[in-house]
Simulated assay, not measured.
Amino acid sequence: MNDSSTCNDNNINNYKIIRLKHKSNLHSSEIKAIDYINKFFNQDNFYIEVNPGSVKIYLKKLDMKKLGRLIKEINDTSPFLLKIYRTIKNIKSYVIENNKRVYVDYNREKKVKNRKKKERNRQKYFYARNHNFNVINQPLPEKYINKIICGDSEQILKEIPDNSIDLILTSPPYNFGLDYKDSRDGYYWKSYFSKLFSIFKECIRILKYGGRIIINVQPLFSDYIPTHHLISNFFIKNKMIWKGEILWEKNNYNCKYTAWGSWKSPSSPYLKYTWEFLEIFAKGSLKKKGDKKNIDITGEEFKEWVSARWSIAPVRNMKKYQHPAVFPEELVYRVLKLFSYKGDVILDPFNGTGTTTAVAHRLKRNYLGIDISPDYCNTARGRLNP
């Protein structure tokens, strides 16, 4: 806002109200444009009131993208209309909910008496207590820093020292029967989990105290195997703290609802899902220590991404990488900025064509990628210096 503007931060009638002064009466075209905008929003959430010498903006919830589209549609170059938009856009106190900015009561919590005492009585993450984790972290040997290594992850990880990796982000093969190079995908489930958990045990060992493991997984619903729950149970049994779960909404609605299961019958309806999961675990402590100078997430990003449903389109050009299940760079970008510092060591033990390592490199993290396919490893190396 400029010097002629004043902002009233009081919530009146459950709104956040902003008053903008104007030096002369608004032009009739500006008033019509504001009336036009108001028609497209529920006044319980947002509207603009025109008064002599000023306008009042009533804010509760607002889709900023929709407001921006309407102003472009009007094609109004009025400085005052643009000032309204910029003033709203520059408000920093809000949360994102269903793609709308929520400005009122988003941080109101129910008051719980003796909260700390009750937390102690409940023993939060009781399942992860009495662990035997070493609290002393150590640097990763130079020969593993910023490398793509081709081979069996289980064997390679055995050579890596304890407590030397800051964050592990990976998406293991889903066991769907996809066509990966140099490896099968469609094992007997017990064999699949046996191998997977052997690798994850090594991951826990080499993870730093306070480090995070983040697993992107999609259960095979047609086999009725809740992979995300089985993986979570494994980490919980191994004393890792479940830090949370992110739903990666892929917005993939090209589902044939009758391909499996009963049609219009409770006999055996088949449930379809448009999302995948990111299961997040911490070793020993929920808090990860780091230098504040190495934080690179913005306030806007933080507020948007802690809302644990991320709408990110899946990769469409997988033929480019000759890989059937590449996850998008945006997914890795958000994970690394939200859960790691610049200079941290990022590991992907199922690195595939190198999305994790490429984004880590770009964000000034150190990386280590491991994959069994020589072709995929070569692709991953090529993505580091495109």
Rank of each mutant, 00 (worst) to 15 (best):
Ile31Cys: 13
Gln218Leu: 04
Ser24Ile: 08
Asn51Asp: 12
Asn42Ile: 06
Gly151Ser: 08
Arg365Ser: 04
Ile48Trp: 01
Trp248Asn: 04
Asp371Ser: 06
Thr258Val: 13
Ala128Trp: 02
Ile206Phe: 04
Asp162Trp: 04
Arg205Ala: 06
Asn132Arg: 02
Leu196Lys: 06
Ser164Val: 11
Pro226Asp: 04
Val135Leu: 03
Tyr187Cys: 00
Ile37Glu: 03
Lys60Asp: 14
Glu304Gly: 03
Tyr188Trp: 00
Thr227Leu: 07
Ile148Lys: 01
Gly210Lys: 00
Ser232Tyr: 00
Leu278Ala: 07
Tyr85Arg: 10
Val50His: 01
Phe197Asp: 12
Lys60Asn: 15
Ala33Leu: 05
Thr227Ala: 10
Thr77Ala: 07
Tyr270Trp: 10
Cys203Lys: 00
Ser153Ala: 15
Arg120Asp: 15
Arg69His: 12
Val55Gly: 03
Phe126Asp: 15
Tyr257Asn: 09
Ile204Arg: 02
Asp9Val: 06
Asn216Gln: 11
Phe327Tyr: 09
Asp344Phe: 05
Asp182Ala: 05
Val95Arg: 11
Val104Asn: 02
Val359Cys: 09
Tyr36Met: 07
Val326Ile: 05
Ser311Val: 12
Ile225Leu: 02
Ser4Leu: 08
Asn75Arg: 08
Lys293Gln: 13
Leu20Val: 11
Leu220Cys: 05
Leu207Phe: 03
Lys287Glu: 15
Asn11Ala: 09
His228Trp: 06
Ile12Glu: 15
Asn233Thr: 02
Arg120Gly: 10
Asn10Gln: 11
Val332Asn: 02
Asn11Met: 08
Asp223Val: 08
Thr77Asn: 13
Lys72Phe: 07
Ser54Pro: 04
Leu384Asn: 06
Thr379Pro: 03
Phe126Asn: 13
Thr77Arg: 06
Arg101Phe: 08
Ile214Glu: 15
Ile57Arg: 02
Ile225Arg: 01
Met318Lys: 03
Leu26Val: 13
Val112Tyr: 06
Lys289Thr: 14
Phe193Met: 08
Asp152Leu: 05
Ile34Asn: 01
Phe176Ser: 14
Lys116Asn: 15
Asp291Leu: 06
Asp105Val: 00
Ile149Thr: 04
Leu368Ser: 07
Leu26Thr: 04
Arg212Lys: 15
Leu70Lys: 14
Asn10Cys: 10
Ile91Cys: 03
Arg129Gln: 10
